[in-house]
């Protein structure tokens, strides 16, 4: 992956046509990935909406406490992690290595905390009898299917992001990754955050009792 990033940064002018967006290839590819991933999430959310409209017996099981409260906490944590990510990008751009490393670690930790809270939430729901194929309240079984698959897909992105951030943080400190790699990771992380801003209202708030 590194070969073109270097090309794009150095020695680009004069020998090659300018990239129409004036950004390194890694970033461009990440933006493309984000677009494609957004379509994937849209497809799953579309499926959720389609099935929900078709289910007259849809369950709305969530109560303000604990589920929504927990959700607000998770949202707050994820939003904060976007801020720390911004700080990390600023720091690495300015060349402040240890600060950049610190902010990256903070972002990864917040992400891990989000994932942990989410898993606790899942555990509680599973204890209550929710499954992919089962609704303890007797309503549409799609609730469990939609809830676990949508939040699961998002959780997969968070966990993947946390791992990537950890690798990049360590790599950045050792010099294996540069500021552009951090920025690219940042685009991904903000995207994961943005998706949550859709998932939270659609999957949580719209299912309050």
């Amino acid at each position: 992956m590194s070969q073109v990033d270097i090309t794009a940064e150095s020695g680009h002018a004069g020998l090659m046509e300018d990239s129409p967006y004036g950004i390194p290839s890694g970033k461009l590819a990440m933006w493309c990935f984000v677009i494609s991933d957004a379509v994937t999430f849209s497809a799953v959310l579309f499926a959720y909406g389609y099935l929900r409209i078709g289910s007259p017996d849809w369950s709305t099981p969530f109560q303000f406490s604990p589920t929504i409260l927990n959700g607000i906490g998770m949202t707050f944590i994820l939003l904060s992690s976007s801020l720390t990510m911004l700080a990390a990008v600023e720091a690495v751009k300015a060349g402040r290595k240890s600060a950049g490393f610190g902010w990256l670690c903070a972002t990864a930790l917040l992400g891990a905390l989000f994932a942990a809270l989410h898993l606790v939430e899942w555990g509680r729901m599973i204890d209550e009898g929710w499954r992919l194929f089962q609704n303890p309240l007797g309503g549409s079984v799609h609730f469990g299917a939609a809830f676990f698959s949508i939040t699961g897909l998002h959780l997969l992105h968070v966990v993947g992001g946390v791992c990537a951030l950890a690798v990049i943080a360590v790599g950045y400190r050792r010099g294996g990754y540069n500021s552009i790699d951090v920025e690219v990771a940042g685009i991904y992380w903000h995207f994961v955050d943005l998706v949550w801003m859709f998932v939270f209202p659609l999957v949580y708030l719209m299912n309050v009792q």
């Binding site: 677009i35 379509v39 698959s149």
Partner: peptide
């Protein structure tokens, strides 16, 4: 392809869930 396969991928995953995890999408 970037947009089209991004829809088939979750569709196939949901199909696999229907087949193996008991969902009813």
């Amino acid at each position: 392809g970037l947009l089209a396969f991004a829809v088939l991928l979750p569709a196939c995953v949901l199909l696999i869930l229907d087949r193996t995890a008991g969902t009813s999408f």
